[in-house]
Simulated assay, not measured.
Amino acid sequence: MPAERQTETIDGHEVSLSKPDKVMYPDAGYTKADVVGYYRRIAPIILPHLRDRPVTRIRYPNGTGTRPFYEKNAPAGTPDWVRLATLSTPGSSKGRDTADFPVVEDTATLVWLANLAALELHTTQWMIGDDGETRRPDRLVADLDPGEHTGIEDCVEVALLLRERLASDGLTAYAKSSGKKGLHICCPISGEQSDGDVSAYAKALAKELEVERPELVTANMLKKERDGKIFIDWSQNNAAKTTVAPYSLRGLGVPTVSAPMTWDEVEAVRELRFTPDEVFERVDEGGDLWEPMLERGPKVPEVEAPKRRKRAARPRS
């Protein structure tokens, strides 16, 4: 009978691994040992994309067939060698003013999180500054979310429209599968503008494509407005939002990965889900397709804020 708990030395740190045979993905029999093995092997590729970014985790302690929970704050028992960043969390649902976010900068931390059944790793669009509070995004993201009665072809069409529109503003777009049913289109940007500036620009682009292709695109967050359309979610550029990291696992019945894709693959795509083994093959053949996302890009164009209407003066009584 396999041991319920074992300890390994990784990066000079002792990492405790528990219940390796516990099934995390019930439809595939994919175990915790498999999850740990995936993150350990993909570590050299994923770690640069996690560097200096606070990580929000989605944990599935009893596997993906059960309800997960989101976690920002470092859990009790966090090893003292895990880097933490104490950041303000205005509007926190937990009522906290701050949270101690893990920052994943080595394989040991990655494996420690995998052992906690943190299957999904979500990061901000900004890196931690010297003061820990300067949140200027160094990447722009548009999450293409297919509504009911749409297909992969519709999602691809919108991705190509968005790539062309971004290019006209001097921005280079890179694509990755969400690991579920959509696509993420991202651009490296300067890190010199506020999240409000970047969000305003992303929203303006989404609205522009909505006007040009109203039968295909919506920039409206309301679920009822998405039927038959691709929702361009521009809101993830807000400093408080996170997006699943490239190469992160997703929490479906079978293990899938949010995998970077070439534009040739996007144009020819018939499937948007990649397994861990397929991701290893892709990395072995072509390396990290998202390596250019690690470099800074240009500023986004400024978008004029809508003018507020002046209220008519009330007559004095």
Rank of each mutant, 00 (worst) to 15 (best):
95 G>A: 10
94 K>T: 11
52 D>P: 03
42 I>W: 11
106 D>G: 08
125 Q>A: 15
49 H>S: 10
46 I>C: 09
75 P>E: 07
40 R>V: 00
79 P>V: 05
91 G>A: 03
53 R>Q: 14
69 F>R: 13
68 P>Y: 14
76 A>M: 07
54 P>N: 13
129 G>C: 05
99 A>L: 09
103 V>M: 03
82 V>L: 01
42 I>C: 12
82 V>H: 11
103 V>A: 04
109 T>F: 00
44 P>Y: 06
115 N>P: 05
134 T>P: 01
136 R>A: 07
63 G>F: 09
133 E>R: 02
73 N>G: 12
63 G>L: 02
80 D>K: 12
67 R>D: 14
49 H>G: 05
90 P>Q: 00
71 E>H: 13
106 D>C: 11
67 R>A: 15
90 P>E: 08
89 T>N: 04
42 I>D: 01
127 M>V: 10
123 T>D: 05
54 P>K: 05
121 L>S: 00
61 P>K: 05
135 R>T: 10
44 P>T: 06
40 R>M: 02
70 Y>F: 15
56 T>E: 14
70 Y>T: 08
108 A>N: 05
93 S>G: 09
108 A>I: 09
100 D>F: 02
90 P>M: 01
62 N>T: 14
93 S>P: 07
49 H>F: 13
103 V>E: 03
100 D>A: 15
126 W>G: 13
57 R>V: 15
79 P>A: 02
111 V>R: 01
74 A>Y: 04
92 S>P: 00
129 G>A: 15
138 D>M: 06
95 G>T: 13
97 D>K: 08
40 R>S: 11
75 P>N: 07
78 T>D: 12
84 L>A: 00
128 I>G: 01
44 P>C: 07
107 T>C: 12
65 G>E: 01
61 P>Y: 05
96 R>N: 12
116 L>D: 14
125 Q>I: 06
53 R>Y: 13
75 P>T: 04
87 L>W: 06
110 L>P: 01
104 V>E: 12
131 D>G: 12
78 T>K: 06
135 R>F: 01
47 L>M: 12
64 T>K: 11
121 L>N: 03
105 E>H: 12
133 E>Y: 00
68 P>N: 11
107 T>N: 08
131 D>H: 02
107 T>E: 15
43 A>L: 04
89 T>Q: 02
69 F>Q: 08
61 P>R: 05
135 R>E: 07
46 I>G: 08
53 R>T: 15
138 D>Q: 13
83 R>D: 02
102 P>G: 03
103 V>F: 01
66 T>Q: 14
99 A>N: 13
90 P>Y: 01
94 K>P: 00
57 R>E: 14
124 T>D: 01
88 S>F: 03
103 V>G: 04
79 P>I: 03
124 T>W: 11
115 N>V: 02
111 V>S: 02
71 E>G: 13
98 T>E: 09
90 P>F: 05
111 V>G: 00
136 R>K: 15
46 I>L: 09
112 W>A: 04
